[in-house]
Simulated assay, not measured.
Amino acid sequence: MDFEILLKQIDFIKEIDKVKYIQRKTKLFNSNRNENDAEHSWHLAMMALILAEHANEPIDVLKVVKMVLIHDIVEIDAGDTFIYDMQKNHVNTDQERLAANRIFGLLPQEQSKEFIAVWEEFEAGLTPEAKFARTMDRLEPLLQNTSNNGGTWKEFDVDYSKVFEKKKIINEGSTMIWKYAEELINESVEKGILRKD
Rank of each mutant, 00 (worst) to 15 (best):
A55Y: 09
N56M: 12
N56P: 13
E57A: 03
D60L: 02
D60F: 05
V61M: 03
L62M: 12
K63N: 06
V64W: 10
L69C: 06
I70K: 02
H71R: 14
H71P: 03
D72F: 06
I73Q: 10
I73N: 10
D77A: 01
D77T: 03
A78C: 07
G79M: 03
D80Y: 15
D80H: 14
T81V: 11
T81A: 05
F82I: 06
F82E: 15
F82Q: 10
Y84E: 03
M86V: 10
Q87G: 02
N89Q: 05
H90R: 13
H90V: 08
H90W: 06
V91E: 15
V91F: 13
V91P: 04
N92W: 13
T93I: 08
T93H: 07
T93N: 03
D94E: 13
Q95S: 06
Q95E: 12
R97Y: 05
L98P: 03
L98Q: 10
A99M: 09
A99R: 15
N101H: 10
N101P: 00
N101D: 13
I103M: 08
F104G: 08
F104R: 14
L106R: 15
L106H: 09
L106F: 09
L106I: 14
L107G: 01
L107T: 07
P108C: 00
Q109H: 15
S112T: 00
I116E: 14
A117Q: 15
V118W: 10
W119D: 07
W119H: 15
F122A: 00
F122C: 00
E123A: 07
A124F: 06
A124C: 01
G125Q: 06
P128Y: 11
P128E: 14
E129C: 01
K131A: 02
K131M: 10
F132M: 14
A133E: 09
R134T: 05
M136T: 08
M136A: 04
D137G: 02
E140C: 06
P141V: 06
P141R: 11
L143G: 04
Q144T: 08
Q144S: 01
Q144A: 07
N145I: 03
N145H: 13
N145E: 15
N148Q: 12
N148C: 13
G150M: 06
G151W: 13
G151S: 08
G151R: 12
W153K: 12
W153N: 08
D157G: 02
D157W: 07
V158S: 05
Y160I: 01
S161K: 15
S161M: 11
K162F: 03
K162W: 06
K162H: 09
V163W: 07
V163R: 08
F164N: 08
K166G: 02
K167S: 07
K168Y: 11
K168Q: 12
I169H: 09
I169F: 11
I170T: 12
E172F: 10
G173S: 08
W178P: 01
K179M: 06
K179W: 11
K179P: 00
Y180E: 03
E182A: 00
